[in-house]
């Protein structure tokens, strides 16, 4: 089972990856689209630079381990996000700064039980129920994740401790990239706000990219 979880975690990651992504956010108050470029090394280092729209172009976010910095080209300043603001949404989406940081490895923080297998009652996926380990610093009470027989996750439901569904994450549009099956689209839907969602689409994805030295440094943020 660990294998499955790790595979799910890594589905869009390589040891070094480079991607262009578009994000579409719809909330009750606004709807916007953004285009960005991202680089990642493992799960610990990520650099994201906004390309479009013009207002936000050049804004960059650097994550190294548990820290996040934002570079704002308009004022030419780099700001570290303090703990008090980690709850804030990232770039207006339904993902929080914290989500970015806590791309925690499911196996590390959760104990899983397989509650469904492919073939059982007509299902095509594994269904794993993840319960956080007693000391794990995660707010969820339970996460239910559906992983296909091809090791590609399709659905994750996040519940609070009372069993109420809080949000749903789906992976869609599975294609083959560099010999691997990769879902090119993720949609995050909050349960209490019908009609709202954040959709992330990979326009291009390159695993094992050549990343220059010092990509994940504060200086790199500014470039």
């Amino acid at each position: 089972m660990e294998e499955l979880l790790d595979a799910a975690d890594d589905v869009q990651r390589g040891s070094r990856s480079h991607a262009t992504v578009s994000m579409h956010v719809k909330t009750a108050s606004y709807e916007r689209g953004m285009k960005m470029e991202s680089w990642a090394e493992g799960a610990d280092k990520t650099l994201i630079r906004i390309l479009e729209p013009a207002k936000d172009a050049g804004v960059a976010t650097l994550k190294v381990d548990d820290n996040i910095w934002n570079y704002l080209p308009k004022v030419d300043r780099t700001l570290k996000i303090p703990a008090g603001m980690m709850g804030g949404s990232w770039m207006g989406s339904h993902f929080t700064n914290d989500d970015l940081v806590k791309e925690s490895r499911m196996a590390e923080d959760y104990t899983g039980t397989i509650t469904g297998r492919p073939g059982q009652a007509g299902a095509t996926s594994w269904v794993i129920e993840l319960v956080p380990k007693p000391d794990a610093p995660v707010v969820w009470g339970k996460v239910e994740i559906h992983i296909g027989a091809d090791r590609v996750p399709s659905l994750a439901r996040y519940y609070d401790e009372k069993g109420v569904l809080v949000r749903t994450l789906t992976w869609e549009d599975v294609r083959v990239v560099a010999g691997r099956k990769v879902p090119m689209r993720m949609v995050l839907t909050p349960a209490d706000k019908p009609g709202e969602y954040t959709r992330i689409t990979y326009e291009s994805l390159d695993f094992d990219a050549q990343l220059p030295e010092g990509t994940f440094t504060l200086q790199a943020l500014k470039r």
Binding site: Y30, R32, D56, K74, V75, M91, G92, S93
Partner: peptide, 8 residues
């Protein structure tokens, strides 16, 4: 509008 407002 959801964008990141920032200014000096």
């Amino acid at each position: 509008d959801g964008s990141l407002g920032n200014d000096l």
